[in-house]
Simulated assay, not measured.
Amino acid sequence: MITVLLPLLFAAVASPADPRPSDPILRALVEGEAAQAQGDSASLGRKARMLSVLGAAPVRGQEDLAALWRRQAQGVGATVDMPPFRGRALGPAYRRGSLVPGGSMTMRQLFLGGQRAQIMVAPVGEGSGHLSIRVEGAQGETLCQKAVGGPQADCAWMPLFTDRYSIVIENVGEASASFYLLVR
């Protein structure tokens, strides 16, 4: 009996990991962009609703993808229900970015003391370059540094005091790279 089940167990363990980001907001962003590229208005509408339900909002200066995708889906006849308004003051913020080979982007973000801080990056599309993420404290000390391999990379910590932190994303590859950055 064990000799029959053993190959099945190894097959289950060796199966490839899900190539999509595990975070629901990053997954909605990546899948929404794919639906937009494929012209799948029904899926695009579902991803717009998902972003709204999860409370994701764009970083200042970035386009609100939930609103854009909702308009695009409704423009071709798809029905997109609006989520109920629950009065959430602050929620996760996302940003779409692109870096040329050797390029970097730095963003300063305020995090509250005593509340968990989390930053995630998910590569988008083909030719994702070689992205890395680094989080630096107010005095320039590195709190987290990771390569963005696989569907997403996460940096999380608990700030002792309310302070501004630097988020640095770099492309050390030889191809341009697009990504979504999510700040919680």
Score class of each variant (00 low, 15 high):
Leu29Cys: 00
Leu8Gln: 09
Glu31Ser: 09
Asp23Thr: 02
Met82Gly: 12
Pro16Leu: 02
Ala34Gly: 06
Leu29Val: 02
Ala147Ile: 07
Arg20Lys: 14
Ala153Pro: 14
Ala153Glu: 13
Gly103Ser: 13
Leu143Phe: 05
Arg71His: 10
Met1Lys: 13
Pro123Leu: 02
Ile133Glu: 04
Ala93Cys: 09
His130Tyr: 03
Trp157Val: 09
Ala67Asp: 13
Arg49Gly: 09
Gly173Asp: 01
Glu126Val: 14
Ser132Lys: 11
Ser178Leu: 08
Ser15His: 07
Met120Asn: 08
Gln118Leu: 11
Ala175Trp: 01
Ala89Phe: 06
Asp81Ala: 15
Cys155Gln: 08
Ala147Trp: 08
Val76Arg: 12
Phe111Gln: 06
Val183His: 02
Leu112Ser: 14
Ala28Gly: 00
Gly173Ser: 01
Glu136Val: 13
Ser41Lys: 05
His130Met: 09
Arg96Gly: 05
Ala42Cys: 00
Gln118Arg: 15
Ile133His: 02
Gly77Thr: 01
Arg164Asn: 09
Met1Phe: 15
Leu110Arg: 15
Pro7Gln: 00
Leu131Asn: 08
Ser22Tyr: 07
Pro24Trp: 00
Glu33Gly: 13
Ile2Glu: 14
Arg108Glu: 11
Ala67Ile: 06
Met158Gln: 11
Met105His: 11
Phe85Ser: 14
Ala17Gly: 08
Val121His: 06
Arg49Asn: 14
Met82Ser: 15
Val121Ile: 15
Gln62Asn: 12
Ala37Cys: 01
Ala67Met: 10
Ala66Pro: 03
Leu65Asp: 10
Glu170Cys: 12
Ala28Glu: 01
Pro101Thr: 01
Gln38Val: 01
Ser15Glu: 09
Asp163Cys: 00
Phe161Gln: 12
Ile133Gly: 07
Pro84Gly: 10
Ala73Ser: 13
Pro151Cys: 04
Ser176Pro: 15
Pro21His: 05
Gly140Phe: 02
Pro84Tyr: 04
Gly125Cys: 06
Met50Trp: 09
Gly97Pro: 15
Gln38Arg: 12
Ala78Leu: 04
Leu51Gln: 03
Asp154Glu: 14
Val76Asn: 09
Val121Cys: 06
Thr106Arg: 15
Ala177Gln: 07
Ala42Thr: 11
Gly125Trp: 09
Ala34Tyr: 00
Ala11Met: 03
Gly75Arg: 05
Lys47Cys: 08
Ser98Lys: 13
Ile167Leu: 13
Tyr94Val: 00
Pro24Ala: 06
Pro101Asp: 02
Leu8Trp: 05
Gly32Ser: 01
Ala153His: 12
Leu9Asn: 01
Gln74Gly: 05
Phe179Ser: 12
Ala37Leu: 11
Pro159Gln: 03
Ala153Cys: 11
Ala12Pro: 03
Ile25Thr: 10
Ala12Ser: 11
Gly102His: 05
Asp23Cys: 00
Leu26Asp: 04
Met50Thr: 15
Tyr94Arg: 00
Ile119Asn: 00
Gln109Pro: 00
Ser176Tyr: 05
Ala11Leu: 08
Arg95Val: 08
Ala147Asp: 13
Met82Tyr: 10
Leu26His: 05
Ala177Ser: 11
Gly55His: 01
Leu99Gly: 06
Ala78Gln: 10
Phe179Tyr: 15
Ile167Gln: 01
Phe179Ala: 12
Tyr165Cys: 06
Leu8Thr: 04
Gln139Ser: 14
Glu136Ile: 06
Lys146Met: 13
Thr79Arg: 12
Arg49Trp: 15
Gln62Pro: 11
Val76Thr: 15
Ala122Tyr: 04
Gln72Phe: 05
Thr106Glu: 14
Met158Tyr: 08
Arg108Ile: 03
